[in-house]
Design a protein around this nucleic acid. Sequence first.
RNA 1: GGUCAGGUGGGUGAGAGGCUGAAACCAGUCGUUUGCUAAAUGACCCUACGAGUAAAAUCGUAGCGAGGGUUCGAAUCCCUCCCUGACCGCCA
Length: 424
Amino acid sequence: MLNLKDIRKDLNFFKEKIKSRFINNSDQILDLLIKLDENHRKNLETQQELQNQRNSISKNLSVEKDKNSEKFKNLSSEVSSIKNSIATLETELAKLQSNINEILHSLPNIPLDEVPVSQDENGNIEVKKSGSVRKFDFKPLSHDVLAKNLDLIDFETAANISGSRFVILKKDLAKLERALINFMIDLHTNENGYLEHNVPILVNEKSMFGTGQLPKFKDEQFQTNNNLWLIPTGEVSLTNMVADKITKYEDLPLRLVTSTPCFRLEAGAAGKDTQGIMRQHQFSKVELVSIIQPEFRVKELERMLSCAEKVLELLKLPYRVMLLSSGDMGFSAEKTYDLEVWIPSQNKYREISSCSSCSTFQANRMKARYKTIDNKNELLATLNGSGLAIGRTIIAILENYQNKDGTISIPEVLQKYMSQKTIG
RNA sequence: GGUCAGGUGGGUGAGAGGCUGAAACCAGUCGUUUGCUAAAUGACCCUACGAGUAAAAUCGUAGCGAGGGUUCGAAUCCCUCCCUGACCGCCA
């Protein structure tokens, strides 16, 4: 959530920045916001003045012993009429506040200057390419075919149990998933300085609001009939750990890692990636979150990116780093790097991680603050990144490490986690 | 799920319709004194919003789990909900 006070101070700056996010009628929306805010503050002043009057009359009444005296009756009726005016104003104020909130809650974060301005992914910039793409002396198969041939995957049974976009991994493939999670968490805790957590994957509405999934992206989330939501990413639970409190300066930065199942409705993705396990309703992901003083956030994003890259480097998978454009970035992000891994069967790079700085955008929604050195309460900066998406890592390993005979070699760093060197 | 007990500032914990934004103690911050690895002592020390300021100071309003209600006046009385703890039941 953007800070209303900041918008007040420099409306034109915000108009320009929001425009770069390609929001319809953004100028008019911001003008309306300012108008509502001015109106709200004007009414608030009047209301507070009336409350002041009410309080002081009440104070006079408290010293008046005789409740039947003329004076008591007069003052009582005076205060009654003031109360009516206050009530009217209150209704008006509540309406204005909810209109203000509606706008404020729907505005995306402001991109940093270095973010390329573009409506969609065509404006993304490749900032790095790493590893060399393997030349096959046979035609590489797609991950789902490879897995099916080895009897390691079952879409039919999963569909019967749950529906489309669900999968059952079997035997060594199930083991590979577990090995990957352990490998990644070990890396992030032992070498990258993140603290391991095990978190709820069902969360309340407030938490989903805090990280920005609600209210705008309601249609992409699974909801239970008990007002709980299945998290679409571990980011929700990890980031909300600092919600509604004032974190001590010396506790920063907080670097948190978790592995959770993630749930996505994929409502707008009908027909997209229907082959294999590229796009599932449920998938595992190792998630990194950093909570830090805002002034360090850009540096922290680079650090986080390199932590995620480290996973791909150790797995010896070819990848590239993309700086996302203003129109392709997520709602809460001010700057995002995507890591894309090489997928031989598709002959292209596909997203396997997304690392974002959300500046104080989420913190503002969550009321996540910290005490500065000079004892002021300021909003925190939050960052999140995948380190990595497990399902897509499995795809990348199966396809990049496949052998001509249909077996899969296991990347060296995973061998001790699998206690074997090949699958199949 | 049932019964009981609770939810007050960073912590412990008073308050039981106006004198309470909230005692006291602990922690914390800034001084003073003596000195030695500690003690004594004073002041300060919740948050949000609005006004104000160069920034402070300062002023106003609101907040005692949340939301309603009663009242001229609610942390305090009433209602609903949420959460925590204990015990019982059930259960991985």
